[in-house]
Amino acid sequence: MAAPESGDGNNGAARMVTLISSDNTRFEVEAAAASLSQTLQLTILDGGGGGGDGIPLPNVDSATLSKVLEYCIKHAPAAANGGAPNATAVDRAELERFDNEFVNIDQSVLYSLIMAAHNLEIEGLQSLVAKKVADMIKGKSPMEIRRTLGFPDPTPEEQAEMNAHMLEYGWAYE
């Protein structure tokens, strides 16, 4: 089988691949978009994911995968231009607006997203979510961070240990 180029097929129609989430939902998506994932890129270059047999993703549930693909589809054209050197300012602003909107979600969804981005090696998405998380905890005290990200309540032992550390480091109180 001749390995087709990723992205545009020769006959005009874009090549499609199928991805299967952990809960067995099938997603059909352009190969160019799925190739934003370094993990999937190799499989797709080898001609995998086409036709009837999809690529199973046992670590990603359907809700998360649909969100991940939303990101990939939006970013695929810019990525195809090699980091978009000839993208217009309007395009860039539009992507930025999309990104801001995209991560404006609950922390539990952010968590699933960053784990999926990590598993699938989608660098841009990982960086985007990491930035959002960093912004959420910036300027907050340790207890505020725990509450923001929904950490379980610390055991008294844990609490005592953290207090001791903070006392040891005078800078923690300002």
């Binding site: 960093a134 910036k138 300002e174």
Partner: peptide, 17 residues
């Protein structure tokens, strides 16, 4: 890395073990 040293030392590093 997105937080930077100051923010890590002022809060994040004391959030949990």
């Amino acid at each position: 890395l997105k937080l930077g040293p100051r923010e890590i030392m002022r809060g994040a590093e004391f959030a949990c073990k």
